[in-house]
Structure formats: C-alpha cells, structure tokens
Design a protein around this nucleic acid. Sequence first.
DNA 1: TTGTAAGCGTTATCAC
DNA 2: GTGATAACGCTTACAA
Lengths: 345, 345
Amino acid sequence: MVTLADVARQAGVSASTVSYVLSGKRSISEETRRRVERSVTELGYHPNAGARALAARRSQIIALVVPLRADVYVPVMMEIAVSVTVAARRHGHDVLLLTKDEGPAGVRRVAGSGLADAVILMDVEVDDERVPLLRAQGTQAVLIGVPDDRRGVSCVDHDFATAGALCADHLADLGHREVAFVGYGSGVYHRHAGYAEHTLAGFRERAERRGLRFVQRPCEGTYESTAGTLGRILADRPETTGFVVQNEGAIGPLLGLLRTSGRTVPEDASVIALCPEQLAEQYAPRLTAVTGPAQELGRVAVEQTMGRIAALDRGEEPRDELVLLTPVLTVRESTGPAPRQGSRP
Amino acid sequence: MVTLADVARQAGVSASTVSYVLSGKRSISEETRRRVERSVTELGYHPNAGARALAARRSQIIALVVPLRADVYVPVMMEIAVSVTVAARRHGHDVLLLTKDEGPAGVRRVAGSGLADAVILMDVEVDDERVPLLRAQGTQAVLIGVPDDRRGVSCVDHDFATAGALCADHLADLGHREVAFVGYGSGVYHRHAGYAEHTLAGFRERAERRGLRFVQRPCEGTYESTAGTLGRILADRPETTGFVVQNEGAIGPLLGLLRTSGRTVPEDASVIALCPEQLAEQYAPRLTAVTGPAQELGRVAVEQTMGRIAALDRGEEPRDELVLLTPVLTVRESTGPAPRQGSRP
DNA sequence: TTGTAAGCGTTATCAC
DNA sequence: GTGATAACGCTTACAA
C-alpha cells in the first residue's frame, strides 16, 4: 500500500506538504505542487479512508436509510437512492446503505461510531421514533418526509397540498362540476399521515374555491374496496364526471370498473392520478397525473445535508430547513372536457 | 465522544483488555468481562470506525455497485440491493452504495483507499472492463452475473440454461408440439450476452430432447417489433400453440396481439414468461413464469464475499467460485393443455 | 488472565 | 512556503 510518507519521500518534501497539496488548505509553490502531483500519480497513491476519518473526524460518508418493504413504489425509491448517491459523490461523499429494519439502533450505530457524518432517512413516519434519538445524539439528519416534530433536523418532501390543488384546477378547467377524490384507506387518515392529509386539504380548498362539488372517499386499494368505493360514489352522486386517485393500488381497478359500468375514459369520465410518471404511462389510456420530482428529492436532501455539515464546520448551529418541492401536472389521455349534462342515461 | 480509554479507566482495566472483551480474541475472566460490559453500556461507548479500520486494516464495509439506469427490472435490483445489505449486516459488515456510472474509477477509489474490503458488482458485462482492474488491484470481488474471464473473482447468477429447459419441459408436458421462443433483440445475441445465450441453449437442448418443433425469433420489445415477430411466427408456423417470452418488454404486446389475432390464452395458446414474479402477477391472465430467486442472489454474493475475506485472513488464496441458482417454474393462468390439432380455423 | 507499547496513515498545530 | 511532530482511537504482538 502506498502511503503519504511514500509520496513525500519520492517527491522530496515532507508529509505535511503532501497533505496540504491534496487538501488545498494552504498555499503551495507551483514547483512543489507539480512534483507532489507527479509522485501521486506515479505511485498510484490513494489516501487511506480510515486514517483520514480518524484524523479529520469526518468520514465523508452519509448514511441513507431505505425502507425494507415496498411501502413506496419501488422504482421511485430506487430513483431517490441513486440520486442521493450521485449528488453525494459530487460533494465528495459516499453513501452507506442502511435498511429501516435495523430501526433506531442502526442510526445510533453509524452515527455513534463516526462511520457516517450524517444520515438521510426515507419513509419517515409522523411520530418517527428515530427523530428524537437523532436530536439527542446531535446527529446531523435530513428527512425525506415530514414528521410532526422536526426540531433538530431538516426535511424535504413533495408539496402535497399543491398536488391536490393542481388536480382540482385541472378538472375545473375542463368544465367538470361534480368530482370525487379516491384516497387511501381510512387507517392512513386516522394516523394523520401527512402526505394523505395535505393532499386532501389542498384539493378540498381549491375545489371549493373553484366551485366544484366533491366527495372524498377512502379506499384500501384492493379490487373489492375500489368497487365498493366507486359504487357508493356513483350511487350518491351519479353526475360525477371527474375522479382523482391517490391510492396507487386503486388505479387499475378504478379504470376497469369505470369501463365495466359503461363509462369511457376520458369521454364520459376523467381520471387524474397522483402517482409516478412510470406508473401513469403504464395504463391504457395513459393517465393524466400529478407527479413529484423524485430525483430532486434526493438531490435536495444531499444539499441540505451538506449545508448542515458545513455549518458545523464553521462552528455554527445548523438551520432546520423545510423544503417542499412543487409537483407537476402532466396531461395525458385520461382527462378531457366534461361531458354535457345529462348525456348519460 | 467516549473512547476505549474512557471505558478502560472507568472499568479499572487497560485499554487492550477492553478491546479484547469487545473482539473476543482472547479469553477474559467473567469478572472483568462484566465490569467492562457494564462500563460500555453506562458510557454509551461506540468503537470509532475510522480508528478501527486504520488499526485492523479492515473497514468492515463492502461496496455494492448498482446500475444507474434500469437495464434490469428495477424492483428486482432493489430487492437484490436490500438483500445484500441485510446479509452483510448479519456478518457485521455495512454496505457502501456506488453507481455504475463512476465506472472503473469508482471501484479503484473505494478499494484503493481501503474504504471497502471488497466489492460486489451488479449488471456485469461479458467483457466488463472493471474485472481486469479488480484482478490487477487484488481487490476481492464478487460479481452478480458472469463475465467471460472470471479469474480472480467469484460469480453468482441465475441458472439460465435450466430456466430455458424448464420452459421447454412445461410446454411439452402440456402436450404442445409446436412452440416459439421470443427472445431479446438481435443485438443482445450478437454481443453474446450470457443470460440470453444460455437461456436459449437450455431451451433448445431440452426442446429437442422432448421432440418439440420450435422457432426462435429475436424481438426488440417494442409493440411494433413484437407485432412483426409474432406475425412472422404465425405465418411460418401457423400451428404454433406455445410461446416462451424472455424479453420483458414484449410480454404486454404479445398478450394483446394474441388476443387481437383471435387467440385466447391459455385455451388457444400458452404463454410462459422468463421474468420476476411481480411482473408475472401483473398481467391478465396472470403468467406462468420461470423466475430466479433474487434475494438469494444477494445473500449468496455476500457469503462468497465473506468467504474470500476469510481466506485472506487465514493467509490463503481466495477460491474463485461460480454459483448458479436454480430458477423455479410457477404455473399460473397463461398456460394450459395444447388445443386439439386443427381446432383453429 | 492482564498490561505495555508500538504502530496504523492522516490532519493540523507550531515553528521556522 | 515548508517541515517537524503531536494527536486521532484502536488493534495486536510482546511481556509479565
């Protein structure tokens, strides 16, 4: 193994000079710099990560905790993980992959041992038990998701309220007057999951402002529950022509059931989904959808992480940020102008 | 930060004793062990990862290189990544996530700096440029996939030949006599991608042995190419009743086209896919499919990695293994008995 | 069974 | 602009 000392010897300078050439933390004469850089490449020197971490008290590693089971749509999770990795590399950091099933212990371990300089958590719960631990440990952390108490950490998430509002606007723009919001199972709302509540609130507020009549119905996402949900909607409000679906599991069944009930999409009924693009593209007809920028999520999380570490290096207290990313509406084939009143039998 | 010395002081023993209690590398009296363990928990001691890596010359980290783009079906990739992480933890190791776009440089960096003790590569090409580098560096490596020259590394992959054979057997068992293999685009075969060639060879060999008549047709996986492929098959061999599809992109189109051509699956034509379970479950009808055990792939890769590291620790030369995992055939709704001869118009 | 001490390869503080 | 040198926190012969 090639060490700093080896490079120093062959370049005819001291070890500290080599170190400073590499870190750029003090001015070096052109002459010396060149000699050192030459030796570095000639010998194929790579600074030892352990030694560096020990001396600098920084590992240049951030830990990323991913959910073990696919609560999130898996390709999106992967997209976030990869974008975190790529962004971290741009900042000279590497990413350590942890699974959520290690629980708080995993976070304690990597932060406590100095293995990671900071952690990024995915799949955050409103009362996530890892957050108080992070705070107590003084571990720098960024959450992808927003817990109730976010003191001591930074957060980034989709702007669900805007997502909901975009749906209401789009349907209103198309002339729909009577619409339905097919949400998650009622359990999700009972535990006050932020993404579900904010979406609904954003939708509701905008729908009211635009003068839409609407119903909101929970839905478990199975075929049966979707059938039940849709049946009730059509029984209560037979004039409903616009549907907003947030529950990904309900999309397929809903499309099938609408067809079965004799309604053509988008001629008789418009459907707009809150889901990833990949998913929206996959149905027939392809779905008009509101989608959050998954890669941005990872990139911003890394920026926030770096910001916190930098603050610490300057001896400042890191700021607890909250960034909400604006989703975009992509119009595809599943939405169209509202049918004329009474055109259905 | 709590250090070894802190623990030693409060337990009234030397630093090395604490170290040995923790590593179990020499026998310790019950009395001492208890005192040390008590201090460890009381003080909340976590061994410093950098210091440990520096002194032990082992980071207890393995690097996992994942493809950046979804050449592989993403959920499966994620499943493998997670299973690698979980398996590594069981062996006291952590996983560093690298993306393939860093190329050979990434591998050189993490191994050269001692950041990782070994690397696991996904998405391996037959003439992968990272393999010679690994060999030259003496970096311990395990590949998920099999390159042409696998000297100096261990490999684990699906047993594609068996997968192909299982397809032939199943169709033969159901009484089909005339079958078609819808493969990948011809480019894949021209560059001799192992998974494609081995599957086809396994299928062919077994089909011949079972007396099946068959054609093999490449297919790019788009709707248009699938239409072309199927059209040619039905023109050349109108009596074809069994289809094997390896190209995931071609599955949806094929099912749609068979329907359009007036053939009902599985009454008129049987379709068997080589794909992940999740995908097979997702079509209507649900697909009979041959699937490799993705989680096993990750687990075995980690076992192989640990084996190589252990060999090194014993001063032995690590053995270059090749493990092929047997896929399983799951019968679902897309295959059935061959229709009676001439039952089609 | 336990202790002493010499590294491991960097970084960073002092000096010059 | 450059060079000694003392940490950094742990592992592991070597002694006792």
